[in-house]
Every structure is written in C-alpha cells, then in structure tokens.
Amino acid sequence: MWVLVALFLPLFPLSVVQNMLLARIPRPLARSALLLLLPQVGVTLLHTLHPPIPGFLVTWALLSSAFYALRLLTVRDLELWSGLFVSSALALTWGVAARGADVTTLRLFAFWFSLPATLLVLLTASLARRMGAAYAGLFTGLAQSQPRLAGVLTLVVLSIIATPPFPGFFALLDILHGFGGAAALSVLGVWLIWGWAATRVLQGFNSSNGREISGGDLGMSSVVGYAVTLVVFAAAGFLFTRGGL
C-alpha cells in the first residue's frame, strides 16, 4: 500500500512513473488537471492507511526531494522543470503526514505546490506556441520583447518556489516547525536549491544573451486571469495557513 501512495505522492524511483505519464500527455489542460488531482489521490490513500508513517520513509522522502531539487538546477525545458519540481515538493508531504497532520492540512499542503505548477504548465504551453519550445536559454530577452509574459512567468515561478506572500512559504514554515533538527536543515537546503534553480531558469528566458524572442505578448485578459488567480491563491494562503508556525 505504501508503494501505491508513493506513486501519487511521488517518491523516487516510483516518481518516474508519474513524470513519464505527465510527459506523455500532450494537452496542457489535461496535464494541469492531473497535477492537481494525483497528489490529492495520494493524500486520500495516505489518510486511508492511517499513519504512523515509518521513519525510513520520511528520510527517503527528504532524500527524494533533495534528489529532484538538485536535478532541477540543470534542467532547461520548462515542461520537464515543472514536473521535477512537483516531484521535489510533493515528496515533502510525507513529512507533514509523519507528524500526524489531519487530512485537510495534507490536502492543502499538496495544493499549495501543485496549483502554481499547473499555472506554469499553462504558461509553458504559451511559450511553446510562440517559440516552438519552452527552453531556457534557447531564445532570450523575454523581459524586453514580451514584458507581460515575462512578468507573469516570474510571478508564477516565485509562487512555485515558496516566496512570500504565496502559501508555499507558510507551508514550509509549518513543515520546519514540525520537523526541527537535522530534518529541518535538509528542508532548508532543498528550499535553497529551488531558489537557485528558479533564478537559472528565469535568467534563461528574461535576459538577452542570445537569440531574442519574437512574437506577440500575452493578452491583457490572460494577464488579468493569471493575476487574479495568484492574488486569490495568496489570499487563500493567508486564510488557511495562519502564518505556518
């Protein structure tokens, strides 16, 4: 049964199955829906099992999270990047579960990381339509040529890597409070690498070091849509996480 849960709340090597599945789905909307749905299935299964979760599984989850965080550093394909990030972030759900959190807290924890990932998947599709592939460093200068798209991409990436005021920040504070000691230090390490990976990928799109992107900018209606989603997301974080600690 633990194996089944590890398929949905990805732990390496079972996470490979989820990543391959996501990579094979061509439609961004379907991929987004799966990104939102799969972790919730995992949480339901985990709740059915009724923890206590064995200590070795929590250690394995932390290692798995660190493994995917490290890999993010050299990934330039934004589609792959969002998949690997979700694998790194959702592995931490095991840590929240291990300290006996209720099912709502677990569901919310998974949601705080999977929602921005779905937004990134949708943005990846926008970029791919304009550039042929959403590949950091291939075409650059997004901030100059398509400032609205660059702005939204930046905000979505910041929300993914748990930057305040987005809920991921408070969710990580909560997990740190639950862990304490060496486990907390490893979560902090993973968080640091997320920030590093995010800057690398953003610089790959926004700075002008190579061939510049051409094509139309994101429409105003799309910008408003993303902005409203992010504002509501942040507000929901304030409401439900209560600061994390």
Binding site: L176, G180, L188, W191, L192, G195, L245
Partner: peptide, 24 residues
C-alpha cells in the same frame, strides 16, 4: 544579481530556523 540573490537566500535560511526554534 544572482550572486547577491543566492547569498541572501543563504542568509534567509538561518533566520527562518532561528524563528522556528524560538517559536518552538
């Protein structure tokens, strides 16, 4: 700019851990 960001992030984490310990 990245150097600055990374050093600042490196500095954020101890303060977060200190806050967690104090609250705990």
């Amino acid at each position: 700019a990245f150097w600055t960001f990374f050093t600042y992030r490196l500095g954020d984490l101890p303060l977060i851990f200190a806050a967690v310990l104090l609250y705990h």
